[in-house]
Design a protein around this nucleic acid. Structure first.
Lengths: 89, 89
DNA sequence: TCTATATATTTAAAAGTTTGGATGTTTAGG
DNA sequence: CCTAAACATCCAAACTTTTAAATATATAGA
């Protein structure tokens, strides 16, 4: 089991804005950065940073479409983290 | 769903020493602070701080036995976090 | 009560994170 | 090619976390 992944993924969740992004992705299926900027009220660079953190963590996928970046949940990653927690008990 | 709990609990996992403690608790069932000090090589105050973080997060239970503090996994908390992740997908 | 052991608290330094302004890069559309 | 829109990067300030030394508190056992 990859502790580095667990650390990164749980760290990615441990922030109110990133948690808000994950919940919105879960609800809406996909979002781009300006959706997130509107939703959170954060600056564009700050959104870009949080989105990068989520992608790096393995919990979010990004797909370029022209100028836009379409984000979606990485269900594999979420299942891996949840599975790790289940195995602890 | 309690976002504050999700934030705190995932933040508690997002550290290599706390993750090591969780894994050891999973394997051994219970530990006290000096077990953790030996295991991690951290200073006593630092162990005390990490243990407090884990207890505050709701992922670890503590039970006083004389001078010792017996720690164990809070399976409820772990299940709540894992369940939250499952519901995202 | 005295001592040793287990844990907590205080404090401060070092390291890491979050944030937004300024600026850079890429691409769609005229 | 030019412009505007979407996103990334650089930078520095504010804030938070991690760490250990020093010190405090609590309890078991002589």
């Amino acid at each position: 089991m990859d502790c580095k992944f667990i650390e990164k993924a749980s760290g990615a969740i441990a922030d109110k804005y990133r948690l808000q992004i994950l919940l919105a992705l879960s609800e809406k299926g996909s979002l781009n950065n300006s959706d997130i900027q509107q939703m959170t009220g954060l600056s564009q660079p700050c959104v870009s940073h949080h989105v990068k953190t989520l992608i790096d963590s393995g919990l979010v996928n990004s797909q370029k479409e022209g100028r836009n970046q379409n984000l979606s949940l990485n269900k594999e990653g979420l299942k891996d983290l949840s599975g790790f927690l289940d195995k602890l008990t």
